[in-house]
Every structure is written in structure tokens, then in C-alpha cells.
């Protein structure tokens, strides 16, 4: 995924379109904050989630974070590679380190999310 084509949440998740489905992951900033990721707990395929619902969990040695659904939808696929290789999230957060895919999403929620420029501004503000 190209960061320029994605939408972003204030919890540092990204979401991007892939055909009829929408891929969700965490940003470069988020993986860097977490440090070496040791475990990812993924949702069940078919689960319906609301926007902001806790959908996955990511753990490093010293931290655990919930991953929230950026928009409402149904879990269409999960990245099973993360079960044995959680470090993919560190190495390639916008690519091989994706978490799950949603379908039948609430598109109005999607358009309300930040674009890349807005997310950069948000990051700059947050660091002050």
C-alpha cells in the first residue's frame, strides 16, 4: 500500500482500498512507538465490528495495544502470517504487516478519516 493513498485514524491505524475490501494496519509511527512486536491477536473472519471497536491486539515486550476498527464493517480476511512472524509489522507496516481486511464497510465513516497530509499534521501536533 502507498501511504499517500491511505486514510488514517487518531489511534495510528491506516485503512486502504483493495478491490471490494479494505485493508487495515498500523502506521510507521505506531510500530516505532511499540518497538519489537512479539505477538498479534487477530479477529475471527466473519465478525461484524463497529467503528472504534477493539478488533485486534498487538503486543511488544513492554506494551500491549488494542487495534480499533477504523470504520464499521465485516472482517473478510486476516493476515495469518503475523501469527508466526509478528516482526512483519515492524519491517513492513504498510505492506506485509497488514492486520485484517474489512468488507461491507460504512463508507461515510471512511471519508471522514484523515488523509496523509492531515495525519502528518496530527503527528506533529501530538509530539508537542
Amino acid at each position: 500500500m502507498q501511504p499517500a493513498n491511505l486514510k488514517y485514524t487518531r489511534d495510528h491505524e491506516w485503512i486502504g482500498q483493495d478491490g471490494a475490501q479494505y485493508v487495515v494496519g498500523i502506521t510507521e509511527f505506531a510500530q516505532n512507538q511499540l518497538g519489537d512486536i512479539t505477538y498479534v491477536e487477530l479477529p475471527q473472519v466473519g465478525r461484524q465490528v463497529q467503528q472504534h471497536e477493539e478488533t485486534a491486539v498487538v503486543e511488544s515486550v513492554k506494551a500491549a495495544s488494542d487495534i480499533y476498527a477504523p470504520v464499521a464493517g465485516t472482517v473478510a480476511a486476516v493476515n495469518e502470517a503475523l501469527e508466526s512472524k509478528p516482526e512483519l509489522v515492524n519491517k513492513d507496516p504498510y505492506g506485509a504487516g497488514w492486520f485484517f481486511k474489512l468488507e461491507d464497510i460504512e463508507t461515510s465513516q471512511l471519508s471522514a478519516l484523515m488523509d496523509e497530509a492531515a495525519y502528518r499534521t496530527f503527528l506533529a501536533e501530538e509530539s508537542h
Binding site: 505477538y39 513492554k62 500491549a64
Partner: peptide
Amino acid sequence: TLQAREQHIRREK
């Protein structure tokens, strides 16, 4: 190990 399960990291969760 697996300390991310525990109260000193995950607190109420």
C-alpha cells in the same frame, strides 16, 4: 515473558 498480559502493563485490561 509475555508480560503484556499483566496488570503493570495492561492495567484494567
